[in-house]
Amino acid sequence: MGETLFTQGAMIRLHKHDLPDGLDFGASVAIDTETMGLDPRRDRLCLVQLSAGDGTAHCVQIIPPALGGRGSDCPNLKRLLADPAVLKIFHFARFDVAMLHHALDVTVAPVVCTKIASKLVRTYTDRHGLKDLLKDLLGVEISKQQQSSDWGAPDLTPEQLAYAASDVLHLHALWAKLKALLQREGRLDLAEACYAFLPTRGRLDLLGYEDPDLFAH
């Protein structure tokens, strides 16, 4: 199952190249990525972290062939990302969906995004980052200290893995809170329409339609 790390009551499993055979995340999986930068067309995908919301995070290190890895040869991971029966929960899905499409040639669907949900129902604040949402809605504090570290390193530190895991361990609970708010405010159908469009929005970003925005005047 790969290297195992225990931190702050959570279990983190590091897998090189792909998820192990037979791993079942159930009906929904929280997903995040770590990359060498914020341009999916330029910057390398380094890590994909996933959780079933059960206190365990699985981190898949994507290593290019030039560095002795398998690159996009990760069939188990790609099968899960494209599985229409498994809901994928992201925070800022627009970036992750585009990155996964570019790096692994897979269309990730169906998806929900906690950042979009927050912007639709928490219009009384501009605090829509994951750190703020977890603190405001769940009372959970996470550190962003490792956010700008070198994710392309061949060996990731325990601190990096703990940071990466923290981005997915609480997404199920966060989505449950935000989904209830969307239902309360009558905006769940609007959110679902946005989510259905996200794979296309990611493809537009990859084609350079981020700026100018295709939908601008």
Rank of each mutant, 00 (worst) to 15 (best):
P84M: 06
A103L: 02
Q8G: 10
G71D: 11
L181S: 06
K179P: 01
R13A: 10
A191H: 03
K179V: 03
L100W: 04
D18M: 07
T7E: 15
E159W: 00
Q49T: 07
Q146Y: 03
P40H: 01
E210F: 05
L50M: 15
Q61W: 09
A82S: 14
R127Y: 11
L130T: 11
H170E: 14
R44S: 14
G22H: 10
R70W: 15
A173R: 15
T35I: 05
I31W: 01
E141Y: 08
L134T: 00
I142C: 14
R13E: 15
I63D: 08
E34F: 03
N76C: 10
I63M: 08
I142N: 12
L188H: 09
L206K: 02
L100D: 01
H91N: 05
V106Q: 06
D73H: 14
L137E: 12
A193R: 15
A117G: 06
R41S: 11
L130V: 02
L161F: 11
L134D: 06
G55R: 08
D205C: 03
L207S: 10
W151K: 06
H15T: 03
C194Q: 12
L206I: 11
D32E: 10
R203C: 05
L214R: 12
G69C: 00
V86L: 06
A193S: 10
V106K: 02
Q8P: 03
L178I: 09
K78S: 12
L100P: 09
V86P: 03
H15V: 11
L81K: 08
P40I: 14
W151A: 04
D150M: 06
